[in-house]
Structures are given as structure tokens and as C-alpha cells.
Amino acid sequence: MASRERRSDAVANRDRIVEAARVELSESNGAAADLKLHRVAKAVGVGQGTLYRHFPTREHLLAEVYRYELTQLVDAVAPLLAEHPPLRALTRWMERLVEYARVKRGVMAAIEASAWRDLYSDQHHRLDEALETVLQSGKAAGEVRDDVDAADVILLLGALSRIPEAEWEVRAHTVVKVIVDGLRPRPERS
């Protein structure tokens, strides 16, 4: 029984560490280099040994924060589609994507290139599938053009990586609005 309790405590500690790191990253505008592991441990109320037992390096913790953010983004699709018309759901989902992109950019800067490729290659299909789900729903409702797919939108979203941090708040949301406007069906011309 004590072993089971320890395991559930360990899982809870791990989850709390990831959440605290996510909050720290959010407060530092995704600047992973500014993530202080001792502050994360203190915020959670665990010792540094506990933090390092779960995440031996900053990169391990950042990779888990990235996975968490991606999971939250992917899991948001169904509830958004249930609550909103497809184009509105897509817009709200892409607004969440802006925060994900900010964290991703900070994580990318802090994780070695080879480790980032491995992490991203294991996960990127989930993002593509989530986006495709929202796009297909929009197409079925006549709210999204038939001639675009997730790959097209992902290419356009690449513009987020070029936005200077100082301009992020204004420009990232504008980029999303422009992309969503471009996804609307065009009136047929005679």
C-alpha cells in the first residue's frame, strides 16, 4: 500500500512540476533560458532532488512541458467543435496555438537541435491531425475553403516563428486573423 501511495505522490509531484514550469515559461514569455529549476521546485514545494529525479536536466523538463502544451492543444479540438461553429472553433483553436507557439519557440531555443528533432518528429503528427479535424469540420459546414489542408495552414503558421518577441502580442494574433480570413470560402465570381 505504501508503495502505491508513493507512486501516486510521485505522479502528482511530476504533474505539479510540469505545471509550475509551464507557468514559469508563460510568465517569462516562453523564454526557456530564464526557467530557473530551483524556482520551479520551490513553487511546487518539493526539493531539488525530487525535481531532478523526475527530470534529470532542464531539457527533460522542457520536453515534458512541450508535450503537455501539445496535448492540451490537441485535446481542445473536440470541445471547441462541440461549443462553436467550425470557423469560430478554428479561430479559437488557433488563438490557443499562439500560446503553444510561444512556448515551443522557447523550448526550441533551449533544447539541443538533435533532441528537438526527435521530440518534434514523435509529436508533430498529433498537431497536424487536430488541425485537419477542425478544417474538415469547417469544410463540411461550408465555412472553410475546400482547396486547403493542414499542410497549407502549417506553412502559413510558420510566420509565427519570425515574429520578434517584442512584437509578439500584437503580431501573432494579427497573423492568426489573416490566416483565418484566407481560409474562408471565396464568393464565386461570374
Results as ranks from 00 to 15, higher is better:
Ala10Glu: 15
Ala10Ile: 00
Ala10Met: 11
Arg14Tyr: 02
Asp15Asn: 08
Asp15Arg: 15
Arg16Gln: 10
Arg16Val: 05
Ile17Thr: 13
Ile17Asn: 04
Val23Tyr: 08
Leu25Ser: 10
Leu25Pro: 14
Ser28Asp: 08
Asn29Asp: 06
Gly30Met: 11
Ala31Met: 13
Ala31Trp: 15
Ala32Val: 11
Ala32His: 12
Ala33Pro: 02
Leu35Trp: 11
Lys36Pro: 01
His38Tyr: 06
His38Ser: 12
Gly45Val: 14
Val46Tyr: 04
Gly47Thr: 10
Gln48Gly: 14
Tyr52Asp: 05
His54Ala: 13
His54Asn: 13
Pro56Glu: 10
Thr57Pro: 13
Arg58His: 15
Glu59Val: 07
Glu59Asn: 05
Leu61Thr: 13
Leu62Met: 12
Tyr68Ile: 03
Glu69Gly: 04
Glu69Trp: 02
Leu70Thr: 09
Thr71Pro: 03
Gln72Leu: 00
Val74Ser: 01
Ala78Leu: 04
Leu80Gln: 07
Leu81Cys: 01
Pro85Asp: 04
Pro86Met: 02
Arg88Leu: 08
Leu90Ala: 08
Arg92Trp: 11
Trp93Lys: 05
Trp93Arg: 03
Met94Arg: 02
Glu99Asp: 04
Tyr100Thr: 10
Tyr100Arg: 07
Arg102Trp: 12
Arg105Asn: 10
Val107Ile: 15
Met108Ile: 02
